[in-house]
Nucleic acid binder design. Structure first.
Lengths: 228, 228
DNA sequence: CCAAAAGTGTTCAGCTTACACCCATGA
DNA sequence: TCATGGGTGTAAGCTGAACACTTTTGG
């Protein structure tokens, strides 16, 4: 099989997942207490090692599912990290992926294999190795990406209100938006259907729930004229 | 050293470089005739294997220098490719980088170790493995990146004319720009100094040469208000 | 009846786009 | 003198940003 390359060196390849969530108020990050050495007991991103029979993408899906139980999640490769000393226990090149999930979907699932916790993005603890760097890079990517592609919806439940969507974009960009301009912009894409139903959690008056018109949404992603 | 991970699998890690150039007319791609098996004699991207003592970035720099003799080149990680069967000779995960270089600088260098050739981007031959995919992805990234960051200048010589710069942006975006609007926009960034010198290669009249005001250029990159 | 969040339009400035003619020069 | 590419300004439309009041309802 590898007869041509046999004099070359081989390396461990890890996959690390930056898992973003949103709980109607704040942008969250799912972290685990590392249950193996080195650095056992410290907070870290969910990760694992690449196995021979799987592609990088498949490994990322496997690792994400192992923690959250969820499949068909928005998952995108971020960057590969290859400093020689990045992992204190050996030479490991890590390919980072970031994922967007609806916190409620994860919370419904019993998961006892890991000690996991959702942290507010601005209150996360220091992480092992270069995981802080990865998290920072992922947030930057999320900012860019969510400006030009309607991926923000991946973080919300199927039904959501416009104030919730706005809070999400404000959390990602860490800056407030004007309510009227934001609504005008979002509604102009014509991908939301207003339901005859209100969510009264946030206020006395209640805010209308919306759902995505999947057909128009798919079309918008293809044509790509989304710009928040 | 690796006592913690010793039951995990290891992999070959390759670095492949998508090397873009510009020759005052067209966007080019530097390819080599592969001089080792498998697929010896086919056109491919310049690549090599990661070695134990170097980071991914260092490996990319080493490999780029080996082909072009150039250091301090614009070089950025693109994506990692990890399909199980992407390399027909074994399991290899490849981390792709793209580089921007001034064709003239490369041409001045004698290089006999490789059979290399600059291809017009739209006339490149079919490449081995998933290198066509990598090239496609790199061009997309270059489009995005050059819209929001002034990296186009990396592809030009120290002195260049505005028609040349425009041709470059047209080549990258594969679409024509309006001459007056393009000049207005570029000059509005205040990062170019017009010299008292003309380049007469392109026309009878000759076009003024410009050079970059490095100070303002660095400032613009920091502040990031560039938008073509 | 009051507090708290939801919902709703208009105006202005700045940017993007479209567009046509004269200039300088070498052959 | 003419063919070729270089250089220049203005007007119209569009988009993004700023801004304040009314509505609903639970307590």
């Amino acid at each position: 099989m590898s007869k041509f390359y046999s004099e070359e060196s081989k390396f461990y390849i890890a996959i690390d997942c930056i898992i973003f969530g949103f709980d109607k108020e704040k942008l969250k990050l799912l972290l685990i207490k590392r249950n193996f050495e080195p650095q056992k007991g410290k907070w870290s991103l969910m990760g694992g090692f690449l196995k021979p029979g799987e592609s990088l993408d498949q490994a990322a899906e496997r690792i994400l599912e192992k923690l959250t139980g969820l499949r068909e999640i928005y998952l995108e490769q971020l960057h590969s990290y290859g400093e020689v000393d990045r992992d204190s226990a050996g030479r490991v090149v890590s390919v980072a992926y970031y994922a967007l999930i609806d916190v409620q979907k994860y919370n419904e699932i019993e998961n006892s294999r890991y000690t996991a916790h959702w942290f507010d993005i601005d209150k996360k603890p220091a992480l092992i190795f270069d995981h802080d760097q990865m998290t920072h890079d992922a947030l930057e990517r999320l900012k860019e990406k969510s400006s030009a592609h309607p991926i923000g919806f991946e973080l919300l439940p199927d039904k959501f209100t416009l104030p919730q969507l706005q809070k999400l974009y404000e959390a990602i960009h860490q800056t407030p938006f004007d309510k009227r301009n934001f609504r005008k912009k979002i509604l102009s894409f014509n991908i939301l259907r207003r339901l005859d139903e209100k969510d009264k959690e946030g206020s006395r008056k209640g805010a209308f729930l919306y759902e995505i018109d999947q057909e128009r949404y798919a079309k918008l992603i293809r044509d790509g004229h989304f710009q928040v």
